[in-house]
Design a protein around this nucleic acid. Structure first.
Lengths: 200, 200
DNA sequence: GTCTATAGATAGATAGAC
DNA sequence: GTCTATCTATCTATAGAC
């Protein structure tokens, strides 16, 4: 069992190192040598464990995003009042963003450059939430617009301060503390904003 | 003058080709050979005109984004009622996005990987608009929140359907026509949404 | 200004010893 | 499983003929 434990440990080190480098540099910008250095192992071991750069990236990407999307699917299924459900989704989204601010841009970039990976994502959660929105609109509880307008509004309102962070901090000469405060207050702000938008 | 005309023409061909390839593949993913092919010229000519890949990218990036941001600066200076000004900014933003849907993700990516370029962007427009928001909030005409919350809301609401296009079309199995309609209706939707959000 | 040819560096991937 | 050494391909960039 000793060998297997060591193996798992190495695989984990590679996984963490590769995640970090891919997030920072993107797929095209990432270098296998850099990942190996970060993991404290040799370049050849990367290929021993994952065969190719593409496979390594694909596995990490799918695992990371499916974990997030499956959380959404669970939330959408819970038995709650509509706005409570929306709030829970926003809370979950903001929590994820605060821990992984690079996820939105990585998702967008990957789908653009590796469209084949899109099929491996489990998007039940998004479909369920869209269904909820459509049914609420039919009942007249919220404004009657295409549910995509609302869905993209929730997501856009949540992620924008994270996407804009580097550029906004620079333009307005803000320090990290100030910006962190903006991010911390974003959840409550978005909840209010969505209520205002959806009022029929 | 014949030589100069031919030179300008070649430079322009390179510019267009490079813009296309950088937008599609990103800086790290772009290849000088691909740009040369796209421009219908030889690879060596790229270096003759622009010295290096980095310089070529930097020049295109700065020109493209400063053109857009200077439009914003002009709008912010116009003598208009507040919501008329907001509407004009949204219209201008949506028009730009409909023609250049890749601009937001390219901006975000570039700032992340080439932070030195941030200093070459002229961000007067954004600063002016933030000033307008702050002064309106002080006057009590709109809700009293940090102006960054509003600024990122406007931008987030505008760009999200463009960022999400490939992934949303796939998840919900939408055709281009349907999605285009969503994009066309986005401007009016965002204007309403911002009014609802800002109401004190 | 424009081309061909190639230098020089570095990428991903593999062979083979241990 | 892990390493060193190396292959092969490909990248940016330049030299030099025209």
């Amino acid at each position: 069992m000793v060998n297997k434990e060591i193996a798992l440990d190495t695989e984990e080190k590679i996984w963490k190192a590769a995640t970090k480098v891919f997030e920072r540099d993107g797929y095209a910008g990432a270098r296998m040598q850099v990942i190996a250095d970060e993991a404290g192992i040799n370049k050849a071991l990367l290929h021993y464990y994952f065969r190719s750069k593409e496979k390594l990236f694909g596995k990490i990407f799918i695992e990371k995003y499916n974990k997030f999307f499956s959380t959404l699917a669970i939330l959408a299924d819970q038995d709650m009042e509509f706005f409570e459900k929306i709030d829970t989704v926003i809370d979950s989204y903001m929590e994820m963003l605060l821990e992984n601010p690079e996820m939105p841009s990585m998702l967008i970039n990957t789908i653009t450059h590796h469209p084949e990976l899109i099929d491996k994502l489990n998007m039940e959660g998004a479909q369920k939430i869209r269904g909820v929105l459509q049914s609420e609109a039919e009942k007249g509880n919220i404004i009657a617009v295409e549910s995509l307008q609302i869905l993209t509004s929730v997501v856009g309102l949540c992620i924008m301060p994270f996407l804009a962070k580097p550029i906004a901090m620079h333009i307005f000469k803000l320090d990290m503390e100030f910006y962190q405060e903006v991010l911390n207050k974003r959840g409550p702000f978005v909840k209010k904003a969505i209520r205002a938008i959806l009022k029929p």
